[in-house]
């Protein structure tokens, strides 16, 4: 059974200035400007089954984030259909809801709630979340006293307590030092072994090689190639776009 299926999905933005002000909206009603539309995603189809892991590669503006937010249900396609069977967790940004004036512990609870964890599970997982992050001795201090790296580690640790059927990751794996990154990768591989679907957009080739078996290569919203991750990553690097 397919867990994530996209059928000819397009996302179209109009390039004229967003109608942020009522005045310009009324004006545009009076004198309609010619619509300049561009495809953030062009008729993309995709089919992922249990245990699949997909790397999404391509230069900036290729449509990687658009694709993830469509699968997450955060935005709606303009054409085509997105079918998702199962609970989705989206790590599109770490530490959503984090506030600098709250303590580390308070932020853990807040972020866990935001990511969809229950009160019970948050309580059960609290100690292991804090352990994983390695910031235990500062957990009662306000977050603004943390270094940027510490904040990210705490954020990622909360995210690991989520147990989704489908995990979407957008460029959030470049967190912390090498030891911490290795821990993160191990944690995600654990999910993958449990048959969860993983979709990962990143520029960090090494991580993608470790995590993903399939890959799609996007450019300006269109599909360039798809195939086994290792093969596609080689081709992508060879093409010289590797360092974006």
């Amino acid at each position: 059974m397919s867990v994530v299926r996209l059928e000819g999905v397009s996302k179209i933005y109009s390039r004229k200035v967003p109608r942020e002000f009522l005045g310009s909206f009324l004006l545009s009603r009076l004198r309609p400007a010619p619509h300049e539309r561009f495809h953030a995603l062009k008729r993309l189809s995709l089919d992922l089954k249990e245990g699949d892991s997909l790397a999404v590669i391509g230069p900036n503006g290729a449509g990687k984030s658009t694709l993830l937010s469509l699968i997450a249900g955060l935005s709606w396609p303009d054409e085509g259909k997105v079918v998702v069977n199962g609970r989705v967790a989206a790590l599109l940004e770490l530490g959503s809801g984090f506030h600098p004036d709250l303590t580390g512990a308070e932020n853990v609870y807040l972020n866990a709630a935001v990511l969809g964890l229950s009160r019970r599970r948050t309580r059960e997982m609290f100690d292991s979340i804090v352990d994983f992050s390695g910031v235990a001795e500062f957990i009662q201090e306000p977050l603004r006293t943390y270094s940027a790296g510490m904040v990210m580690r705490l954020a990622f640790s909360v995210a690991t307590a989520v147990e989704p059927d489908i995990l979407l990751i957008d460029e959030v794996l470049a967190v912390g030092d090498q030891a911490f990154q290795a821990k993160c990768v191990a944690k995600i591989l654990e999910l993958k072994r449990a048959g969860r679907v993983l979709i990962c957009a990143s520029h960090v080739k090494q991580t993608l090689r470790q995590l993903c078996s399939r890959a799609i290569w996007l450019d300006r919203g269109g599909l360039v190639r798809e195939g086994p991750a290792a093969e596609l990553l080689d081709a992508y690097e060879g093409q010289g776009a590797g360092q974006t």
């Binding site: 609970r87 969809g116 948050t122």
Partner: peptide, 12 residues
């Protein structure tokens, strides 16, 4: 993740 813990989220 799809939420079924609205109360916990709202409270937080």
């Amino acid at each position: 993740m799809r939420h079924n813990n609205h109360g916990f989220l709202l409270g937080n």
